[in-house]
Design a protein around this nucleic acid. Structure first.
Lengths: 212, 212
DNA sequence: TATTTAATTAAACGTATGATTAAATAAACC
DNA sequence: GGTTTATTTAATCATACGTTTAATTAAATA
């Protein structure tokens, strides 16, 4: 039990000054796992080993913390997908896009729940950022890609691009969130190569499902 | 402003004695739209036009109300799917199953959000009922159907049944919850025939995606 | 060195929540 | 008709929540 840093006042300069980042990280984990309403700012502060008042000092409010965390967590995904999309236009672009999408979700376990909770949060608190900065950008990327693939004859032309985008997002995002349930129901043992096999399965279902 | 029924005491026999059902209906709508934590028992009682204490009288607790509502809402879906599954074994069984699944979700708008909120509620309050009574039964039905179709050569044999079931659930459930977001992002206008067209689209993506 | 600014703590505030209780009233039963 | 039981209301309880404030300390600045 170290008793350092128990008194008020500005901390010595030796410290990491990483309080803000600790809060963001703690908030990411807790909000993803339990949802906005179930997480108290005291719980976040405790997980971050920080005084609860620091949340208001750095983020103004609980909602401010949540919004900052969501933007910091989800924005990079859109950016990377955009890069892959503008990288190439060959026959493997769709496959690359899909693989990067699912691999990123698999490597950042807090992403899928955060996305799903926002999607289901109809009329919720910060719907604005999620829709305008995440969903519409991601949806734009997706439909552009799909139409490009349709023009190239790799996706059948009679498929509605918006519906196709929805199908792709469904196949890619939902299973990650459902995995804990599926483990109990199907007894899936998540071994090392499981993620790879699952991505390959999903990729094939989608690509074959929308092919001409 | 009618002032009837404002005094305590057992109500006259003329009344409907439907308090319990009113509470279940109000709870279904509110919990589906806002989630468990965001809904107060006072809000449920107000929506049901009933005294808040009635929740504890009939259901013991907020959680009791939630569990009763969830069971009453989701159990019929599993039952109906089971009937369809055991009805026939011909080439249209899979298509019938899929259509009934999506059509039921579309006709009962509170179902998809309730399911999704349970799926994402890792370590949540009543995970027990959802997993043991809903997810495992539904998962059992699904894998049985998929393996039957594989034996009949209508689903490719190298597809993992559990993964295939996950893909099917993803394609069928997620889009309903994402529809409000998709409307804003894609400008989808939900016309009369939209649901039919969307179900047809999804059905084709899945069937074609898992075909040999 | 003296003063101001930044970062942190502990304590408190007002409110909303889930839950409980006592009283009240009509139905059900004997 | 008298007693018991079922259903409802209003009031209250304790707690947890988001937020605010005042005090405190070290860094930054001059």
């Amino acid at each position: 039990m170290e008793t350092i840093k128990k008194q008020p006042g500005r901390p010595p300069a030796g410290g990491d000054q990483a309080v803000r980042q600790q809060l963001l990280t703690a908030a990411r984990g807790l909000f993803a796992k339990q949802g906005y309403d179930a997480v108290s700012i005291r719980a976040v502060a405790e997980a971050a080993r920080v005084n609860p008042a620091m949340i208001h000092y750095y983020f103004g409010s609980k909602q401010g913390l949540y919004e900052a965390m969501l933007a910091a967590t989800l924005a990079p995904l859109i950016e990377r997908l955009g890069q892959v999309l503008s990288a190439g236009d060959d026959a493997s672009a769709l496959r690359n896009f899909f693989a990067l999408y699912m691999r990123t979700l698999g490597a950042n376990p807090w992403m899928p729940p955060l996305i799903l909770r926002e999607v289901v949060a109809e009329g919720g608190r910060l719907r604005a950022w999620f829709i305008q900065q995440f969903a519409s950008k991601g949806g734009g990327l997706l439909t552009r890609l799909i139409q490009r693939e349709q023009a190239a004859g790799r996706i059948r032309a009679d498929a509605d691009p918006s519906m196709t985008a929805l199908s792709m997002v469904s196949l890619a995002v939902f299973p990650f969130v459902a995995m804990p349930v599926a483990s109990e129901v199907f007894g899936m043992r998540v071994k090392d190569d499981y993620l790879d096999r699952f991505i390959a399965h999903t990729e094939r279902v989608f690509l074959q499902g929308v092919s001409p």
